[in-house]
């Protein structure tokens, strides 16, 4: 049994909140750079350049890439041989979030009650935490702040098995078409297929943690990703919705078994400010 202290988790989450908001991943930067080479729209190219320039400023000045520093989503894979000591695990994640958002000059974007008073909690807590128990004695923490604009464009479709692969493609493409300029294209389209309703959405979210544009390890899913990407980029929405070839930088699919009656498809759209940072303790 390996012990990991509460304070270690607090400090890790604090740092990951700041780093994820300041430093855009090299995978995203390379993907935008590649899009710039293929984008036909002059306005689209200008916007892609602005995105790269914005990332440079954020990195150099250590200021958030986007004023929407997101709802703090934390993925934790806890080794079954890990014993967390010194305090409550969930509170450690919350305290790390609190410190990261306050010390890091990050915007606090959480309200305490969703449909009535909507009072800002002023420290971006509570975070959303997704825990998995894994083999081994390590703790993997991934902080993925998620902006409201792209999250609001999420959709869940409980399709009929008869809808099949083409039904999945149509549902995803239609979701992106309806989102239009709203989720800050170019986007990354997270798609979760199978499981149950809530599991499909979690798969969609989790797919966004993959390096941008790295195909699925499952060849069938990889082929589906390529087909959806082609269809999405035919929509012509383009950077910021002003027209162009680059509506999406990538489509990421995660799939799993499902019920004989079901074909759940969840879409979780990620804006170009695709922020996530991880640490293994």
């Amino acid at each position: 049994m390996r012990e990991i202290h509460y304070n270690t988790i607090v400090e890790a989450v604090e740092r990951l909140c700041m780093e994820s908001n300041y430093f855009l991943g090299d995978d995203v930067l390379q993907s935008v750079q590649k899009a710039l080479e293929h984008e036909e729209s002059p306005t689209g190219r200008e916007i892609l350049q602005e995105i790269l320039e914005n990332a440079r400023i954020a990195r150099e000045d250590e200021m958030p890439l986007c004023q929407d520093c997101g709802y703090t989503v934390v993925f934790a894979d806890i080794g079954q041989d890990v014993h967390i000591v010194g305090g409550d695990f969930n509170e450690a994640i919350a305290e790390g979030t609190r410190r990261g958002y306050i010390k890091g000059y990050l915007r606090k974007s959480v309200v305490a009650h969703p449909y009535s008073s909507r009072i800002n909690t002023k420290d971006n807590t509570p975070p959303v935490i997704h825990v998995r128990i894994a083999p081994g004695d390590k703790l993997r923490l991934t902080v993925a702040p998620k902006g409201g604009g792209s999250e609001n464009m999420s959709a869940l479709g409980m399709l009929k098995p008869a809808d099949g692969r083409e039904g999945v493609i149509k549902f995803v493409v239609e979701t992106v078409r309806k989102a239009g300029a709203n989720p800050c294209p170019p986007i990354i389209v997270g798609v979760g297929i199978g499981g149950t309703a809530e599991q499909a959405m979690l798969l969609a979210k989790r797919s966004l943690l993959r390096e941008v544009g790295q195909p699925s390890e499952n060849p069938e899913d990889a082929a589906l990703e390529a087909d959806i990407l082609t269809r999405v980029n035919k929509l012509g929405i383009g950077p910021q919705g002003l027209g162009g070839r680059t509506t999406a930088l990538a489509v990421h699919v995660l799939s799993q078994p499902c019920h004989i009656a079901s074909l759940p498809v969840a879409v979780n759209i990620q804006c170009h400010s695709a922020r996530h940072k991880e640490i293994v303790l």
Binding site: D68, C69, L106
Partner: peptide, 22 residues
């Protein structure tokens, strides 16, 4: 339509991009 990130010392404002209008 915007909600800025807090300003760092010496800056007038933090990050300050638009939010979704609808």
């Amino acid at each position: 339509y915007m909600g800025p990130a807090p300003a760092k010392p010496g800056q007038p404002i933090g990050s300050a991009g638009p939010t979704t209008s609808y």
